[in-house]
């Protein structure tokens, strides 16, 4: 049984009388220890797919199963424990420090504060002197690192990333992709990243492409 199974999921936006179909009966399976990327044209439905498997939205039909259980059975727990998010625009709490942002995620997940938050921040490249800074005082790359630290601190089984390198320079992007690879291969996490960047996609284990014609996820050989 795959860690995360997407079964016949459909999704559309209702705009007045018009129904704009984004995904149609799409299925996919994701395993632990793999780094997946999802590529596709703008508006093809990559991010929509990510929002569905992250339980930020609900499919119109079909189901998404984590270890055989529908993720919508207990969304709160799923978001608290099983899944971590990394967003393109970081989405950190702006008035909190790096440590506080990570600590908040741990608190919400009811995890012990004994976890070495500064150690996790160090892994993603946040130096000690920056850990107590309010995140708005950090650079974009640093903020994204904090966001990754926040996502991985609670050791989720799945890490979802939505164009995490979109706003970053090449070096930082490289660093983040390396971290994702490390998390997948060393920490046995399932990393699913949406990206436009085919170069980055090449560095993942498996690439999915959203085919705008059939509105399904298909495996791609980049």
């Amino acid at each position: 049984m795959a860690l995360l199974e997407v079964k016949n999921v459909s999704y559309y936006y209702q705009d007045g009388d018009n129904k704009r179909e984004i995904l149609k009966d799409t299925s996919a399976a994701f395993e632990r220890g793999n780094f997946y990327t999802i590529v596709g044209e703008s508006g093809s439905g990559k991010t929509t797919f990510l929002s569905l498997i992250g339980a930020l939205d609900r499919p119109k039909s079909g189901e998404i199963l984590l270890k055989g259980h529908n993720i919508y059975e207990d969304v709160k727990r799923y978001r608290q424990k099983d899944v971590g998010f990394v967003f393109q625009s970081y989405n950190l709490i702006p008035y909190m420090t790096a440590v506080e942002n990570v600590s908040l995620a741990l608190d919400i997940a009811h995890l012990s504060k004994k976890i070495n938050i500064k150690g996790i921040l160090a892994i993603v490249g946040i130096t000690e002197d920056k850990t107590e800074r309010v995140v708005t005082k950090l650079s974009g790359g640093e903020q994204q690192r904090v966001a990754i630290a926040r996502a991985i601190a609670k050791s989720p089984t799945i890490l979802l990333a939505d164009e995490p390198t979109g706003n970053l320079d090449t070096d930082t992007s490289d660093f983040i992709v390396n971290i994702f690879n490390m998390l997948a291969h060393k920490m046995n996490m399932c990393i699913i990243m949406v990206t436009h960047n085919l170069e980055i996609a090449k560095r993942s284990d498996i690439v999915y492409r959203v085919d705008p014609k059939i509105k399904k996820l298909v495996k791609d050989n980049v």
Binding site: S42, G43, S44, G45, K46, T47, T48, L50, S51, L56, D57, F85, F87, Q88, S89, N91, D162, E163, G166, V194
Partner: peptide, 8 residues
């Protein structure tokens, strides 16, 4: 969903 990119 606003947390995600709005381009897609």
């Amino acid at each position: 969903l606003d947390l995600l990119r709005k381009t897609d």
